[in-house]
């Protein structure tokens, strides 16, 4: 099994604050990796470095063995990495279709042909409907996102991530704001995506969810990597202990 993403001595400093220190581990292709840790452990920061929103202070990222500079969202997208953020980062007054295709609007020829291309709303709404149905959802793609419930809005954010057909999807706290029902739906979605050969990294405080869908868990505490554990091999208590910084006693 090869590492699709290899993090090598990643550190991130914000002024005086050391958010991440010397984090090194690999994410296997087609696995579901949970990123766990207490508040302030550096999980979101790590995610943002991989997704291009932030840049590491030192260290390297390797994607499929090749060193990668991920300077912004477009670089990440080009490398097949998409992210769904905890606060969703959707535009509330824009429609579902417009959000899904934000930044990647589909164009059609305008009156001046190739010189002036217009946005093709019909095509976008059609493809949006299709994407949403894959997530087993029917939402009116022409309706403004603010009209929908929290869970539905998150589906829009996920659909947006899937629109570019990514290899790697990162989810930051995908279940924290949801009802039990919606949580289950998201977890099912993660499993289904993984079956379709998408590598998934997700941050969660919900250890039940972690044990349910994840293959492995990477534990961060105070900016450092405490360890990466196979979830068939570790108990919840041990996991919590590692999140609090206690290195795991090696199993025998």
């Amino acid at each position: 099994m090869s590492a699709v993403i290899e993090l090598d001595h990643i550190s991130k400093q914000f002024g005086q604050v050391q958010a991440l220190e010397d984090v090194s581990f690999g994410i296997e292709e087609n696995e579901v990796l949970a990123l766990v840790g207490d508040n302030g452990a550096g999980k979101s920061t790590l995610i943002k470095i991989i997704s291009g929103v932030l840049q590491q202070t030192s260290g390297s990222i390797y994607i499929h063995g090749e060193e990668a500079e991920i300077g912004d969202y477009n670089d990440a997208e080009a490398r097949g990495i998409e992210t769904v953020y905890q606060d969703l980062a959707i535009a509330p007054n824009r429609t579902v279709a417009q959000n899904i295709f934000l930044g990647n609007e589909i164009l059609e020829s305008g009156p001046l042909g190739k010189l002036l291309r217009f946005v093709d709303d019909e095509q976008m709404e059609r493809e949006a409907s299709e994407l949403l149905s894959r997530l087993e959802l029917t939402l009116d793609p022409g309706s403004a996102v603010k009209n929908f419930s929290g869970g539905e809005q998150q589906s829009v954010a996920i659909a947006r991530a899937l629109q570019s057909d990514p290899d790697i999807v990162i989810l930051d706290e995908p279940t924290s704001a949801l009802s039990l029902d919606a949580t289950q739906r998201v977890l099912d979605l993660i499993k289904r995506l993984n079956e379709q050969d998408v590598t998934i990294i997700f941050i969660s405080h919900n250890l039940e969810a972690v044990f349910d869908v994840a293959d492995r868990a990477a534990i961060l505490a105070s900016g450092r990597l405490v360890g990466v554990e196979d979830l068939t091999d570790v108990t919840e208590d041990e996991l919590v202990g590692m999140m609090m910084g206690r290195a795991r006693q090696s199993a025998d």
């Binding site: 992210t83 535009a91 509330p92 959000n99 217009f118 946005v119």
Partner: peptide
């Protein structure tokens, strides 16, 4: 209303974060 630039203007004002995170 119809150009990509116009859409980006709307998106930038609606949620600058969403726009930026989408590569705009």
């Amino acid at each position: 209303w119809r150009t990509r630039f116009g859409r980006h203007v709307y998106a930038t004002g609606d949620s600058e974060q969403a726009a930026r995170y989408s590569g705009i």
